[in-house]
Amino acid sequence: MPDQTLAQRAETLLAKHQPGNPVILPTVWDAWSARLAVDAGFAALTVGSHPVATSVGKDDREGMTFSDLLTRVEQITAAVDVPVSVDIESGYGEEPARLIEGLLDAGGVGLNIEDTVHSDGGRLRSVTEHAEFVGALRRAADSAGVHVVVNARTDLFLRQDGPESDRVERAIERLKAAAAAGADVLYPVGRHDPETLRRLASELPLPINAIAVPDSDDPASFGPLGVGRISFGPFLQNALSGRATEILQRWA
């Protein structure tokens, strides 16, 4: 039988994704940052691979192992009583069933999956391959009895892959395929101008995830563009690091 608490948290997380009224998921990396966000009033969180890797002295892009990540996720879910999504990069070379099993055992109820395969030279999955991986994650979650919230990500913009002239169209094609395969949220990761975000939100069939810089972006600016989810990537940790450096340098 599935863990009813996990199943309920997954449904709660999914319901928060409303285009035009985006859920804000602060990107955290340990129990301290998770508690900080929850105490500030946030009702769900996402665990970022980049800040987690930085916090344990390893590189992003799967410089840590899936086990490394799960250890940190377990610490976070033990510290806070809210739904937690987890950035699992491109899967750490693990099979989808193992990824879902590990995620649920650690208390996570959502995931980001990207199309850059770090365990295979950093190549980009094809449209079909990425969709099939998303579909396998969905089937594994269904078998576990928990509707894990799958956030399908494409790195086309980060990689500046191919001609800029049709990059938006190619990202939409990729993300539509992921949606058809069972994704719940679509993540064209990158910093986009308002018109591009509006187009992505209007042409994609599911809520989209936008990345925000928390100490400079206007929180109210994303909803009118149709965004359904906001996260911070490494930018919250970067902002705190910058402030901490200022304080420490006064004493150095």
Rank of each mutant, 00 (worst) to 15 (best):
A53D: 11
F232V: 05
A220W: 01
L103C: 10
S126P: 06
R167F: 01
R167N: 00
H192V: 00
R72E: 03
S221Y: 08
E89S: 02
V86D: 11
A140G: 12
S33H: 14
A171E: 01
Q75Y: 00
V47L: 14
F222W: 11
G41F: 09
T196N: 00
V56G: 02
G102R: 13
Q75W: 01
V80D: 11
V56K: 07
A220P: 00
E94H: 12
E74T: 12
P188N: 06
D193Y: 03
W251A: 14
V28P: 11
G102N: 13
A43H: 12
A131S: 14
L6V: 13
D115C: 03
A140L: 13
A179E: 00
Y92E: 13
L111W: 09
V82N: 05
L200H: 00
L206W: 05
E89T: 02
I230V: 15
T71W: 01
Q249W: 12
L248P: 04
L124N: 03
G162D: 00
E62F: 07
G48I: 08
V227L: 04
W32V: 15
P234H: 07
A244S: 10
S67L: 12
V117Y: 07
S216N: 04
S202L: 02
G162V: 10
P26Y: 03
D30C: 11
